[in-house]
Amino acid sequence: MKKTFTIVVFLFISFSALAQMPHDAIYMPKNTACLAVSYGNSSWKEYWENTLLRENLNMGKHTTQNVMPMLAVGVSDKLNVIIGLPYITTKTSAGNLMGQKGFQDFSAWIKYKLVEKDGLALHGALGASVPASNYVAEFLPMSIGLGTKTATGRIVASYYHKSGAYFTGSASYIFRSTVKIDKDGYQAYNKVYNTDIVAVPNATDARAAIGYSKKAIVTELFAERFTCVGGDNIRRNDMPFITNNMQSTSIGWYGKFQPKNIGANARIAYVTNGLNVGQSMSYSLGILYQFNSLKLLKQKN
């Protein structure tokens, strides 16, 4: 019979590199844009099978890598549009599970500055994602994604002190669609569902960061919490499934250096606690390029 496996929190792959992220308080000025291309790597040796933190000798170390181009556009000084599409590969260091690869989910966000006063600001962000390829969702933990369409509503609060110190906090609710899988029956919640449609639980996330931002430099420490709203647990020694109640708490650091149009950023994060997810260490590195005038660009073309 099949061996046991586990999971990756794919959701954290998205938007790990750019300066203007859906969870921060930074905006591209009107008619400017920033293109980022990042490389990300996330790996784990242990995972939470329900609440049990365990290793799996038939997987060894599980690694997810991604390359993601992202574009943030300043529609106005208060409204940014951000799009991205990661290409993902998965592999394990032991066992015989076939690695998967492909374009994962195309995502788009709009971020809008709702109020700003004395360095305090409140922002709203709406995001959506759709699978960009017909990847296999039911082969966790090797699948490159969960196969859901998502819609996210997010609220972000920020405070910037003139010294450069800042704080941001955000919270989101993520609606996740049903997924059509290859099988026409599956086990979840100790029941058999005689259908190929799977209800993936919705999710929430929350994030808090403190940092320093001055001139070309951004550096921050953050904590993140991701929680499914419902879902079932990986059964003893069973494979994970897309109905699982995945939860995780991560801490990390993010930094950016962009003296001129060209810049770079980096991010590192570690899962400290979880449920039905891998205890992953992840990092990403990105190169940024800022277009100062989109109109100029258009004229040239």
């Binding site: 529609v75 669609s177 209800a199």
Partner: peptide, 22 residues
């Protein structure tokens, strides 16, 4: 903005429908 909002709401509707065709 309006277009994006419409797109979002449309997606939200499809996302919320979790009826399983059993």
């Amino acid at each position: 903005k309006t277009l994006l909002l419409i797109a979002f709401v449309t997606l939200l509707n499809t996302s919320c429908d979790k009826t399983l065709d059993l």
